[in-house]
Design a protein around this nucleic acid. Structure first.
Length: 606
RNA sequence: GCCGGCGUGGCUCAGUGGUAGAGCAUCGGUUUUGUAAACCGACGGUCGUCAGUUCGAUCCUGACCGCCGGCUCCA
């Protein structure tokens, strides 16, 4: 639901055609009007702004009288009032007015926010639509349901303070979010879906499965606990192997650098707010790195580089710190400490397209391994940018061309102003459990920073040239990537990254024979590289242990008891918790099966 | 940073202006069990922090810290 764009042209103008059957979108838009009608009735003097239908619901923004804010008790009253208006079956009445007349109407009602919308409309619009719902009048193109009685299944969900027109320097309005459906059953289903999504929440699963910890003494700076660390290191190991094969060289660089470095790179001027700064002994200022790029420039400059060395690919899985505004942190998905599978690739200008192609191939490979579907997004020149506009436009043109050629117009979007301060970028976007979009990987084109560090290589012509740099991260932030993975798999990870791959449960825990059999079995699986674990807690019943393994989402549970030992054939019964099935097979066969599943990086259920 | 909400034992949550409970987990004992919770008992909290109101505050007020939902910002 966040970041919804409100398009004025949809809000105001000539009314749209009424379809034969109202759609969900129409219903929700009408619900937004109903909400505004309720609020203006309850709180006279309320100024109303915009109220569109959004995914799964609707909202409306209000300028409340006397700086009033909307809390739970107000929301309850509003929902009740809406219910009253529903039973009255008030018709939505359409009217078309010349623009000046509409302006006058809203001005007389003191609805300055509506007047502002009219004033922002393009000059060629001569007439606008007005919808009346009893006393409530809204500037609107519609269409709407015939009357308020249609809005039977709705729920007010929450309120939020939002800046008028999304700009921080503007007045803050009160936004009320709600959801609406055609019938009660669909509403219930939606609320149920929200509950299900909550069970996949990576913060909840992270705690339940002991993957990571966020301590109040280090807000937004995750601790990786043993089981979570296994996931982290498996991902890094996988990436390392793939990158080495593709000609990357790994380096490691300082976490803290003196401000001189940041001044050279431009971070001092353009990114200081996002950095943690500290004093040095002699009064110098140091900053924890928010990005690895300046260090990569230092490494590049250590030697005389030739065009024959390019592309020169330095990967750096460094830990970064970014000082975020409080209130923006969110579990692993928005943090102040994270590790990136970062790399900086130094190339000649004519190598840009080919290198991008190679990188986008890696992206496709990596995301495919996890079964993640992603969107690409081109981020263009931001307000705070470095360098000259011509270079920027050239870079943006190159990236757009690459995207058009590689994936086609339908597979990417453009986010104006979303580029890094040193260059435009192509981002990889993935959704979380409740449909919020997050940027993971990023492939950024940079003509600026190498110039600032006076990087150069000797060209085939014998003359010095400035390299172009591609900053790229495939996972992006490992923290964020793992957060997404937790939700994507609901904690049921592919075997190759599952912290515990196989757990052994004894039927009797007072039998030395059983204990020995388990020890031997575990040993042989460990030798094959499988992460095995023995169920602890003496005195528990087998059922209780199985339950506890299931809750920790252990993929395979092997139960061994006296009967198995007496048979002496090394045949075990394994429970496949993902398929909820059981199989009886020789231990060696089980080992082979798991090793194959790990090596093939098979997805759960495939 | 802004708006709203929340902050009680390791976890999930009750509760009251007279300094607190439950279940799970942990620990001890009994049980030795064949595929999602055996039974009995014990330990455990200065109720986020700091001020204030009050005879007395976990409960009321304020500030701060953290968290949650949005806004803004971003990997």
């Amino acid at each position: 639901m966040p970041g919804e764009e409100v398009n004025d042209s949809l809000e105001a103008g000539l009314p749209l055609e009424q379809p034969e059957q109202p759609t969900l979108e129409i219903l929700r838009h009408s619900a937004a009007h109903l909400l505004a009608a309720a609020v203006t009735q309850l709180y006279p003097g309320t100024r109303y702004d915009v109220g569109p239908a959004i995914e799964d619901g609707f909202f409306y923004n209000f300028g409340m009288p006397h700086g009033m804010t909307l809390g739970p008790s107000e929301l309850e009253a509003i929902e009740k009032k809406m219910g009253d208006l529903v039973t009255q079956k008030i018709p939505f009445e359409r009217q078309i007015l010349p623009k000046p007349e509409a302006r006058k109407l809203f001005a007389e009602m003191g609805q300055d926010l509506k007047v502002a919308i009219i004033d922002r409309m393009p000059g060629e619009v001569g007439e606008v639509g007005i919808y009346r719902t009893g006393e409530f009048v809204d500037l609107c193109r519609g269409p709407h349901v015939p009357h308020t009685g249609w809005i039977k299944a709705f729920r007010i969900l929450r309120s939020a303070g939002v800046y008028w027109r999304g700009r921080e320097e503007n007045e803050q309005l009160q936004r009320v979010y709600g959801t609406a459906w055609f019938d009660q059953d669909e509403l219930e289903k939606y609320l149920h879906r929200l509950e299900e999504a909550e069970k996949r929440d990576h913060r909840r699963l992270g705690k339940e499965l002991g993957l990571f910890h966020l301590d109040p003494t280090a807000p937004g700076m995750p601790y990786w606990l043993p089981d979570g660390f296994i996931i982290l290191s498996e991902l890094i190991q996988f990436s390392r192997r793939e990158l080495r094969r593709r000609g990357y060289q790994e380096i490691s660089t300082p976490l803290i650098n003196e401000s001189a470095l940041w001044k050279t790179s431009g971070h001092w001027e353009h990114y200081q707010d996002g950095m943690f700064l500290m004093e040095g002994e002699n009064g110098q200022t140091y900053g924890a790195k928010p990005m690895n790029c300046p260090n990569a420039m230092v490494v590049f400059n250590l030697g005389t580089r030739s065009y024959r060395d390019l592309p020169l690919r330095f990967s750096d899985t460094g830990i970064l710190h970014r000082n975020e505004r409080s209130g923006t942190l969110h579990g692993l998905l928005r943090v102040q400490k994270f590790q990136q599978d970062d790399a900086h690739i130094f190339i000649a200008e004519d190598q840009i397209a080919a290198e991008y192609e190679r990188i986008l191939e890696i992206v496709d490979h990596f995301y495919g391994v996890f079964g993640l579907t992603y969107q690409l997004r081109l981020g263009t020149r931001p307000e705070k940018y470095m360098g000259d506009i011509d270079t920027w436009e050239e870079a943006e043109r190159i990236l757009k061309e690459i995207l058009l050629r590689q994936v086609g117009e339908s597979r990417f979007t453009i986010a104006p102003g979303d580029g890094a301060f040193y260059g435009p970028k192509i981002d990889i976007i993935v959704d979380d459990a409740i449909g919020r979009s997050w940027q993971l990987g990023t492939v950024q084109l940079d003509f600026q920073i190498p110039r600032r560090f006076a990087c150069s290589y000797v060209g085939a012509d014998g003359a010095p040239h400035t390299p172009v740099v591609i900053h790229r991260a495939i996972y992006g932030s490992l923290e964020r990537f793992i957060g997404i993975l937790i939700e994507h798999f609901a904690g049921e990870f592919p075997l190759w990254i599952a912290p515990v791959q196989c757990e052994f449960v004894p039927v009797q825990d007072d039998s030395p024979e059983v204990a020995n059999a388990i020890r031997d079995a575990m040993h042989s699986m460990q030798e094959a590289g499988i992460r095995v674990f023995q169920s602890q807690s003496a005195g528990e019943r087998m059922q209780s242990r199985i339950r506890s393994s299931e809750l920790r989402k252990v993929p395979y549970i092997v139960v061994i008891g006296k009967r198995d030992v007496e048979r002496g054939d090394n045949v075990v019964t394994v429970r496949d918790t993902r398929r909820n099935s059981q199989a009886t097979l020789p231990l060696t066969a089980l080992t082979t099966q798991l090793v194959t599943e790990i090596n093939e990086r098979r997805l759960p259920g495939s």
